[in-house]
Every structure is written in C-alpha cells, then in structure tokens.
C-alpha cells in the first residue's frame, strides 16, 4: 500500500461512515434514537435495508472504495433475525470483507457488525459512537 500522508485534523478531513441498518431492528432503534433527540456524530450515514442479509460484500467494499472511511452493518440480535438467519449471513460477509481488506493492507476494523433489538436505542447509540471513535482514530482511507 502507498504511504499515508499525515493530514491535520481539519474541516476537510471529515470522515464518512456508512451504516446498513435493517428495517426490523436497527433502523427502528435508529428512529427511536432520533425521536429521543439523542446526539450522534454526523459522520454516520444510514442506509435502510430490509434485512442485514441483503447486504453483500460488494456493498461493503464499494462503500469503502467510493468514499467511506468505515462501514458497518447493524441488525437484529443473533437468534432473533426476523428472517431467521439474515444476520448470520451478514456476519459471514463482514468476516469475508475484513479478511479481504487485511490482505490488501487496509485496517479490518473499518468494517464491523453490531446487533440490537428494535427497542434498544442505547445500543444503537453505542454502536454509532464506537464506529465514529474507531474511524476518527484511523487516518482517512487512502485510495489509488
């Protein structure tokens, strides 16, 4: 990988994190968070998917390739997927993407998976903040 340029923490260096949220649990928790007026880092960009099982490795990698510094999937608790095992498929694909990234020298922690119930807004907030923190502590993702 090419050498990274140390960028000063300036306005221009604002990061972008794409979150794929399932409509059954995570997006519901996101809406609950909004309704409760809880502040979240503006880096997070939410994308609604019906089930985390809809998200393919292509979506994860394309997001990184085209401008995101981090990407995560948030879905139902393990065992409580509304489509039985969609979140387990998602977990597999996250692992796949992480391995792929690692093999080309990109930090695998840029890609993560979180699970939560529809009612668990605090867990949603925690996931968003954790993701923001992780990505803020990493340099912007360099692309060719």
């Amino acid at each position: 990988m090419e050498e990274r340029i140390e960028l000063p923490e300036a306005e221009g260096a604002e990061r972008k994190i794409v979150g794929f949220f399932c409509r059954e649990c995570a997006y519901a928790a996101a809406d609950a968070t909004g309704n409760a007026r809880v502040s979240l880092p503006p880096t997070i960009r939410s994308v609604l998917v019906p089930c985390t099982g809809r998200v393919s490795p292509l979506h994860l990698l394309k997001a990184l390739a085209d401008g995101a510094d981090g990407v995560y999937i948030a879905g139902c608790l393990v065992g409580q997927c509304h489509y039985r095992e969609g979140n387990l498929y998602a977990l597999d694909r996250i692992e796949f993407a992480r391995a792929l990234l690692e093999s080309v020298g990109v930090e695998p922690e840029r890609v993560r998976m979180f699970t939560m119930s529809a009612a668990d807004s605090p867990k949603f907030v925690e996931a968003a903040r954790k993701m923001h923190e992780t990505i803020s502590n990493l340099p912007p993702l360099q692309r060719k």
Binding site: P50, C51, G53, R54, S56, H59, A63, Y83, Y89
Partner: peptide, 30 residues
C-alpha cells in the same frame, strides 16, 4: 417477505430484490 438474503447470496447476480437492487443500494452509499 422481501428480506433479500437470496439476492446477496446469488453467485450469478440473477436474483434481485425489488426496491433494493444493488444499483439502488449503492447509489445511496456512493
């Protein structure tokens, strides 16, 4: 019920989910 697990797993790209095609999802991401 429109979960789209099949669309993500399909190795040939034949399967798609109405309203959530790869193009539609990626447009939002990019």
């Amino acid at each position: 019920r429109g979960c789209g697990i099949c669309a993500a797993e399909c190795p040939s790209g034949a399967m798609t989910l109405g309203g959530f095609s790869d193009e539609e999802i990626l447009a939002e991401v990019m």
